[in-house]
Design a protein around this nucleic acid. Structure first.
Length: 573
RNA sequence: GGCCCCAUCGUCUAGUCUGGUCCAGGACGCCAGGUUCUCAUCCUGGAAACUGGGGUUCGAAUCCCCAUGGGGUCACCA
C-alpha cells in the first residue's frame, strides 16, 4: 500500500439497500467537498454486510445517483458515466465491497479474541430478546449481561472452534470515552455506558461497527463526516480503535435533515402518502376493495391488503397508487428528485445549505446562498457546519430549482428538458426541433421543474381537433360585446386571422407574430388583450397560455390556422 | 425511560467562539401594490424571531447555571 502522509481521505459508505437518500446525498457531498478542498481523495465504500437486504443493483443505483449529482469518487468501485470512468484504486486499498473483505475482518477478530479483548457468546437472538424485554418491563436499561463470560475461557474457545453458533462481542472498556467532534466539540460518555456489543454476527459477517473501524483504518480514512444519528455509535468505534491499536480519525457529525413536521425523512413517507390517498379513494368509492385494487394496480391482493393495514410499506404499491390515482408522492431519494425534474445543481446548492453556510456577503450586502459544486470544493469547511437539525423545505427547493432553470441558456434548457422528456414524457419529442425550442422557451418561466413544464406545454401536444373550447371563455371572450364599442372577440379574431394568413411560414416566429398583432391592434384601436384572448381561446380552448406570439409559433403556422378555422366553424353567432 | 445532541422570523440561516457597530440582516414562503395580452416571470413594499428564568457585566442574541422544548440513539440493521 502506498500512502502519502498528509493525504486527506474522506469516505461515503452507503449500504446498498435501495436508492440514495437525499440525506445521504448531502453527507456524500460534504465528504466530497472536504476532500476537494484539501486536495485529498474521496472514497466510496459499499457496506453490504447485511446479506439479506443488500443488492448489486442498489449499489449501482447509488453510484449513478452520485454521478448524476456531479459527486465523483477518486477511489471505489468503478462506474462508466457519460463516457468517463469514475472510481478506481490508486492506493491499493480495495476491495470496496465489505462482503469481499471478510478475511480481513476475521484476522482482526481472531487477534482480539486471542488477546482476550473479545469473546464468543452463545445466546440465541430469542434469548437476548427475552432478556431485553424483561429489562424494559422492569424499567431497566438493557445491557448485555456478560453471561458468556461465566463460561470458562477454555470451554468458550473450544465450543467456538467446534462450530457452535456464536457471535463475537467486544469487551467494553471500563473507562470514560471522550469523542472529539469538529462540529460538536468534546462529547463525553461515562464509563459503564457501553455494553459488550457484537462485532461479528452468527453468520460470520462483521457488524457495521466493526467493519467500519477496520475499513477506515485499512483504507487510510482521515476524516469521517456523517450525520448526527451516528454520534452515539462513535464511542464504540473509538473503543474498537483503542482495542485494536488504531488511530482515531477526525470526526465531524452534521445535523439531521427532517420533514417539515419534524419527523425523520424516510422512504416510508412515500408509503404514508400513498396510503392516505388510497384511504381517500376507498372512502369515495366503495367498490374499491383490495381485490378490485389488485386488478387496478396489477399487484398481489395480499400485498395491497397488508399495505392498507400498515403491515408493509411496499414501494411498489406506493408507486402504483401514485400512478393510477395520479397523486404526487413526496420526493425522498435522489432518484425521486431526478424523476420529478429537478436540476442536480439546484439539489446540490440546496442540500449544501442544509447544515452548512458560506457566511459570505454579496456586494449588495445580501447573504451569498447561490453557489455551485466548484464553489463548495473551494470553500467548504468543517467549522461552518451548523449544529441544529434542518427541516427540508420543498418550497424553497422549488424556488432554487426555478432559479436554476432561469439561469440556463435557452439552448441548455431546451437540451436538458428534451433529455428529461425522453425518459419521462416521450410524446413531447414528437414536435419538430424548431417548434420544440420555441415551446421550451415559452414554458420556461412557467415551470419550477421539468415535470411542471408539461402542464403549460400541453396545448401544443394535443391534436388540432382534440381539445374543447371552454364554455365560459367562449362566452366571455368571443361572444360578449366588446368594451367601449369595440368589436366582439369573435369578429376581431376573424379579422386578425386574415392578417395571419398573409404571414409566411418563414416569418412565423414569436417576435414577428407579436409585432403583427401589435400593428393590428393599433390599426383597430383596441388593446392587445382584446385580440390575444380570443386568439388564445381559439388556439388552446382556454384563456391561459404562454405569450400569444409564442403560442402561435409553438403550434406552427398550419396547426395554428387549422385550430382557428375549427374555432370559427364551431363557434357561431 | 437511560444516554447523547441541539435551541435566532412559519422554514433555511447571518450574527454567538473574539459581549457594545443588532430596537437582530438575508433567502424561501406569506400579504399588499406595480409591470404585462391571460397564466407565469419580473419589480417595489410589508408583517414576521433572539424558548423561559436566574446569574456575570457599565452593557448579553452572544458567557455561565437551571428549567422547558425539540431531536437522536439504545439490534446478531447500517
Amino acid at each position: 500500500m502506498t500512502s502519502t502522509p498528509d493525504l486527506v481521505v474522506t469516505r461515503f459508505a452507503p449500504s446498498p439497500t435501495g436508492h440514495l437518500h437525499i440525506g445521504g446525498a448531502r453527507t456524500a457531498l460534504f465528504c466530497w467537498a472536504f476532500a476537494r478542498r484539501h486536495n485529498g481523495h474521496f472514497l466510496l465504500r459499499i457496506e453490504d454486510t447485511d446479506q439479506a437486504r443488500s443488492s448489486d443493483e442498489a449499489a449501482r443505483g447509488i453510484m449513478e445517483d452520485l454521478a448524476w449529482l456531479g459527486i465523483d469518487w477518486d477511489e471505489g468501485p468503478t462506474l462508466q458515466y457519460q463516457g468517463r470512468t469514475i472510481g478506481g484504486d490508486p492506493r491499493s486499498v480495495a476491495p470496496f465491497f465489505q462482503a469481499r473483505r471478510i478475511d480481513i475482518y476475521n484476522d482482526y477478530i481472531n487477534r482480539l479474541v486471542e488477546q482476550g479483548k473479545a469473546y464468543p457468546a452463545f445466546e440465541t437472538p430469542e434469548e437476548l430478546e427475552a432478556k431485553r424485554k424483561a429489562a424494559v418491563a422492569a424499567k431497566q436499561t438493557y445491557r448485555y449481561d456478560r453471561a458468556a463470560l461465566s463460561i470458562p475461557p477454555d470451554e468458550r474457545i473450544r465450543r467456538m472452534k467446534a462450530g457452535e453458533p456464536h457471535v463475537i462481542r467486544l469487551m467494553a472498556p471500563a473507562e470514560e470515552i471522550v469523542v472529539h467532534d469538529e462540529v460538536l466539540g468534546d462529547v463525553r460518555y461515562a464509563a459503564g455506558e457501553m455494553d459488550d456489543f457484537v462485532i461479528r454476527k452468527a453468520d460470520g459477517f462483521p457488524t457495521y461497527h466493526f467493519a467500519v473501524v477496520i475499513d477506515d483504518q485499512t483504507m487510510g480514512i482521515t476524516h469521517v463526516l456523517r450525520a448526527q444519528e451516528h454520534l452515539n455509535n462513535t464511542p464504540r468505534h473509538v473503543a474498537l480503535q483503542r482495542a485494536l491499536g488504531f488511530r482515531t480519525p477526525v470526526y465531524a457529525h452534521m445535523p439531521i435533515i427532517s420533514n417539515m413536521d419534524g419527523s425523520k425523512m424516510s422512504k416510508r413517507d412515500k408509503a404514508k402518502a400513498a396510503r392516505a390517498a388510497l384511504a381517500d379513494a376507498m372512502k369515495k368509492d366503495a367498490s374499491l376493495t383490495p381485490a378490485a385494487l389488485a386488478e387496478k394496480l396489477s399487484l398481489d391482493e395480499k400485498l395491497i391488503a397488508d399495505f392498507i393495514a400498515k403491515e408493509n410499506d411496499s414501494l411498489d404499491v406506493a408507486a402504483a397508487v401514485a400512478r393510477v390515482f395520479n397523486v404526487a408522492l413526496p420526493e425522498i431519494e435522489v432518484a425521486d428528485f431526478r424523476d420529478a425534474g429537478y436540476l442536480p445543481e439546484a439539489i446540490v446548492n440546496f442540500i449544501a445549505l442544509l447544515g452548512w453556510n458560506p457566511g459570505m456577503k454579496l456586494p449588495d450586502g445580501k447573504d451569498l446562498e447561490k453557489f455551485d459544486a466548484r464553489f463548495l470544493a473551494e470553500h467548504f469547511s468543517l467549522d461552518r457546519i451548523g449544529k441544529t437539525s434542518a427541516k427540508f423545505d420543498r418550497a424553497k427547493l422549488l424556488a432554487f430549482n426555478q432559479d436554476a432553470i432561469a439561469a440556463l441558456s435557452p439552448e441548455d434548457f431546451a437540451a436538458r428538458w428534451r433529455a428529461w422528456c425522453a425518459e419521462h414524457a416521450p410524446e413531447v419529442l414528437n414536435l419538430p426541433p424548431d417548434r420544440f425550442a420555441i415551446l421550451a422557451e415559452a414554458v420556461r418561466p412557467r415551470a419550477r421543474t421539468f415535470r411542471d413544464a408539461l402542464k403549460p406545454a400541453a396545448f401544443a401536444l394535443t391534436p388540432d381537433d382534440g381539445y374543447a373550447f371552454d364554455e365560459a371563455a367562449v362566452k366571455k371572450v368571443l361572444l360578449a360585446p366588446g368594451k367601449d364599442n369595440a368589436p366582439r372577440g369573435l369578429d376581431l379574431l376573424r379579422d386578425f386571422t386574415t392578417t395571419l394568413r398573409d404571414i409566411p411560414a418563414t416569418d412565423w416566429t414569436p417576435a414577428t407574430l407579436d409585432a403583427h398583432m401589435a400593428t393590428f391592434c393599433q390599426q383597430k384601436g383596441v388593446g392587445p388583450g382584446q385580440v390575444a384572448q380570443p386568439l388564445r381561446v381559439a388556439l388552446t380552448g382556454s384563456t391561459v397560455s404562454p405569450g400569444i406570439g409564442a403560442t402561435l409559433a409553438a403550434l406552427g403556422r398550419d396547426s395554428a390556422l387549422r385550430r382557428i378555422d375549427r374555432c370559427l366553424a364551431t363557434i357561431s353567432g
